[in-house]
Simulated scan of single mutants.
Amino acid sequence: MAAGASVRAGVAGVPYGHVVGSEKWRGSRLARGLQGPVRLILEEDLALVDFHLPHGTCILYVSEADVVAGNGFRRRLAQFRSASNLNGIVMVERTTTSDQYFPAMQNFVVLELGMTLLPVANQEEASQLIIQLVHEQSKDRTSNPFLRKQCSQLTHASILRTVQQIPGVGKTKALLLLQRFGSIHQLCNASVQELEQVVGQTVAQQIYAFFTQTN
């Protein structure tokens, strides 16, 4: 099956309160944590995706071992982004071992791929976040906008930390930038003149240079 088709497998018709997961998760702590609060259905050949949620949301899970091992996970995430327009959420295990690699991964996922990043301590925490997403989706069955709202609530601290990594940007400026531009995507595309209105000329040039070099 082609990568694009595999990415989309199982997405259509995932009922509310259900999660379709890859067979490779059978018996894992993450799968056990999902059973009960939601109905987990395991299927083979979900390819790049670990879990499908209602509303066409996908979870791609990156373990501590994946992060430490190198760039294999980057290829998988890039393939997903190029093969699909689905709502992809990347869950990554942020531990004492993987923490040193986290800033680079955060830049890659959020800034380069434009995907939502949720750091988790372990599979148990990941299962609770997935359950929260599914239950919130079930409360609003009429439209997708909820999803962006919920994800923004879950990832606000993570996105704020990402913006603070830009040279010259502290917490206050990061908050002002996100308030003005609304998302990292819009911030990436902002002109120097637009940035100057929020943070002044010097920092605006630093931000513009940062995104230009990243891209």
Rank of each mutant, 00 (worst) to 15 (best):
N189Y: 01
E196D: 10
N71G: 13
E112R: 08
N144W: 03
Q79D: 15
S143L: 05
A204Y: 01
E64L: 04
A209R: 09
D140M: 11
V134F: 02
L147S: 05
I130N: 12
H55E: 15
G88R: 05
T162V: 13
L160W: 00
N144M: 12
F80W: 04
R26E: 15
R8G: 15
R180P: 04
A5V: 05
A69C: 08
S191G: 15
N215S: 12
V198Y: 02
G114T: 08
A190F: 02
G170I: 01
H156Q: 10
S63A: 08
T97L: 14
G114Q: 05
G114Y: 04
L77W: 02
Q164V: 01
S28H: 04
L42C: 06
Y101M: 10
Q35C: 09
Q35L: 10
F211M: 04
Q205W: 01
V20K: 10
T155L: 06
V163R: 06
K149E: 14
D66C: 09
K139V: 03
R141F: 01
V38I: 09
I166E: 13
K171Q: 14
S98T: 06
G170H: 05
K24H: 03
V19I: 07
A174R: 05
S152Y: 00
V14Q: 09
A209P: 02
S191C: 07
H185K: 06
A78L: 09
L111D: 15
N107A: 13
I89D: 08
P15Q: 04
V90G: 06
T95K: 07
N144R: 06
V68D: 06
Y101L: 13
L133E: 03
V7C: 14
G21L: 03
A5W: 00
Q206F: 05
Q128N: 11
M105F: 07
K171D: 12
D45I: 00
F108R: 04
R29Q: 11
M1I: 02
P119V: 05
S84Q: 07
R148K: 10
R76D: 13
A104D: 15
E93D: 11
V169H: 04
A78W: 00
S6I: 02
L117I: 05
V109F: 03
G56F: 01
G13H: 06
F102K: 10
G200M: 05
F102N: 08
S63F: 03
Q123A: 15
Q201R: 12
H185A: 13
Q205L: 03
Q213M: 03
D140T: 11
K173I: 01
V49T: 12
V38G: 11
R161F: 00
A3Y: 01
R81F: 02
Q137S: 13
S158K: 03
Q123D: 15
S6L: 12
C58Y: 00
